[in-house]
Amino acid sequence: MSWVLGNLDVIGGHAGAHLLQALPAIVLAFVLALPVAKLAGRLGVLRGGISTAAALMYAIPSLPLFIVLPIVLGTSIRSMVNVIVALTLYGLALMVPAAIDAFRSVDGDVLRAATAQGYGPVARFWAVELPLAGPVLLAGLRVVVVSTVSLVTVGGVLGVPSLGMLFVDGFQRGITAEILAGIVLTAAIALALDGLLVLAGRALMPWASAGKAPAEPSPAGAPDPAAAAAGGAA
């Protein structure tokens, strides 16, 4: 405990670097997943390819990916850009399938009704389709947030600053409190961001929390998202 109190500035710096890598990756994964999912929804051929690519991406452990990516990107192995790109790829592997499900959960009749009311394709997407897909998108994004925040720490062994440095440093110097602080803070950041998302979801989609959740998949034949999402990428 005294280690933690005496090193608050170090911990703060690492936490800042942690967010600097996690947040861009989360935002990029979310923003990029939407058009890819829309495209996949329109072209059925693409859907199989995307789910295969997502499953493959998933299977690749994170540390080797951090090491292999610089060859493709031309970045240094200790660069944050390298980590952000890797985390974005993992985020996409989780988010694209979730977004495809989300857009599929929107009732086609509702979309046709919106068209009949005079919505153009762009306005219909923003005003009708995206909000209705929102709850399922949010569920996917929450998984992305928690797994991304935890994955950032792996960069620590390569010397990329993040809360993972607390594990590396704590292990080398034999300071248990430092490692514990890193674990607790990483989990706390993940849970805090997750909580913020839930609150944002309630504010933006009040209809989803009132009454039953829409687009709840039927219990039969729906694999538990936890089973799928706890996979690879560690």
Partner: peptide
């Protein structure tokens, strides 16, 4: 899922 793997490995090692 929120638990960092590297954290667990180093913690148990200590």
């Amino acid at each position: 899922r929120a638990l960092p793997t590297l954290g667990l490995v180093t913690l148990f090692a200590l």
